[in-house]
């Protein structure tokens, strides 16, 4: 096992509402792609909603996180508020000019727009070094 394998501090935790509309699913798709690209790591908002201590405490302790809501109903924000987790970075997909529709077909252009907006929100607080550029392995968590 690596001598320096516990690198959770380098992960931006990404929490997406993943709701049942185009904007909810855009939050999900953006979170998945940013995870695959090494920008951060998608985490289970449902675990926090269920008040499971591992999920709640992880979210409280992580230095960098972003919560993404599809629309102004703000389900992700409400879940975090209910679990008494401070929100460090926050984005609402409809705020970047994407209209909410109750359909699940996503436009690639919209996915890219949301990903860029998430990166911008995170970098405004503190610059994020993508995991892929740190050259360190991640074997924990």
């Amino acid at each position: 096992m690596s001598q320096d394998c516990c690198t959770s501090n380098e992960n931006v935790m990404i929490l997406a509402c993943s709701g049942g509309s185009n904007v909810g699913q855009l939050s999900n798709r953006a979170a998945v792609e940013l995870t695959q690209e090494g920008f951060g790591k998608m985490y289970c908002l449902a675990g926090i909603g269920g008040h499971l201590s591992g999920f709640v405490q992880s979210t409280k302790d992580v230095p960098q996180m972003v919560a993404i809501d599809g629309c102004s109903v703000g389900c992700a924000r409400a879940i975090l508020d209910h679990a008494e987790v401070p929100i460090k970075n926050y984005l609402v997909v409809t705020d970047v000019g994407i209209e909410k529709k109750h359909e699940l077909n996503l436009e690639e252009e919209d996915v890219q727009k949301v990903k860029e907006a998430i990166k911008e929100v995170c970098n405004k607080e503190q610059p994020v070094i993508p995991i892929a550029e740190t050259g360190r392995s991640i074997c924990c968590g």
Binding site: C6, S8, Y43, Q57, S58
Partner: peptide, 17 residues
């Protein structure tokens, strides 16, 4: 379900991660 390690669990409740 912890996001990273080390983590400490006391009587089943995660206290830090």
């Amino acid at each position: 379900g912890v996001f990273g390690t080390p983590a400490v669990v006391i009587d089943g409740k995660v206290k830090c991660v």
